[in-house]
Computed example of a mutant assay.
Amino acid sequence: MEFGATEWLALGQIIWINALLSGDNAVVIAMACRSLPPAQRRTGMILGAGVAIGLRIIFTLIIVTLMGIPYLKVIGALALLYIAIDLIRPKNDDEHGVQGHDNMWRAVGTIAIADVVMSLDNVIAIAGVAGDHWGLLILGLVISIPMIIAGSAIILAAIDKFPIIVWAGAALLGFVAGEMLVSDVALVERFGEAFIHSWETTVAIVLAAAVVMVGWLLSRISAEKRAEAEDLTPTH
């Protein structure tokens, strides 16, 4: 693979685009790894980011064809909403008791699925820069891995001090899901691009609020069940 001025410029653009568009992915990595034991967090973030980049490379190779499939983004948006709610819903004792290896691989799986879902728009921009130069594309994505890991580490440290960031991250995923949902090719063809664009931000905000509301309701229900269980527990 020969590198001239054009290739170096394209490589820089790929790295820059991926760094800019991967902020929400860094949030997912940090949120998915926040419950891991401290000794496993770094490993979980590295594995999660590595798997995510690998899947993104594969995904980019087929995205141009897939983007023409109606309702693909609708399905992706629903999957992303599920992931957002699952990250903030209260976990029972059995879930918290899952040890080391299982926890880490569950986190890596969440990261991989979320990255695939959230990268529909990202890969189009990156593929547009690389054109048919797949070696350039792969190199740019691989170089971007440390950027994503560093961003995840910063967010994870902030989550430890400010747990409210978890809720903000879930709302962000809901917002992304809203944007993805209304931009599906089937909806654009049916209602028109201008109409869809006018509702894009509104739908995104509504779904972000819905994620937080559902998470809050699940927390209330969980707290009430715990309170009832404590009341029924015999005292000695």
Rank of each mutant, 00 (worst) to 15 (best):
V74M: 11
A107T: 10
D86I: 07
I75R: 02
V27W: 08
H96P: 03
D86G: 08
V27G: 01
L120K: 00
L36T: 01
Y71I: 02
Y82Q: 05
F59D: 05
I113D: 12
G100N: 15
V108K: 10
A39W: 03
R56F: 01
I29R: 01
D94E: 15
I57K: 06
I69T: 13
I62A: 11
R106F: 11
R106S: 13
R56N: 08
D102R: 15
L78M: 14
I62M: 11
V74N: 06
A30W: 02
C33R: 01
L47D: 00
G76Y: 06
V51C: 12
L81H: 05
V51Y: 08
I113P: 11
G100S: 15
T43Y: 01
L47S: 00
V129T: 14
I83C: 11
G131S: 12
N122W: 05
G44F: 00
N103Y: 10
A125C: 11
R34P: 00
G140P: 03
V98R: 15
A79I: 10
L136Q: 03
H133C: 03
I57D: 06
I124Y: 10
L120Q: 01
V142S: 02
A107E: 09
A114Q: 12
A26M: 11
L136C: 02
D132K: 10
L61H: 03
I111T: 14
L66A: 13
S35F: 04
R42N: 03
G140T: 05
F59C: 05
A84K: 06
N92M: 08
T43S: 07
I88E: 02
N92I: 05
V123Y: 06
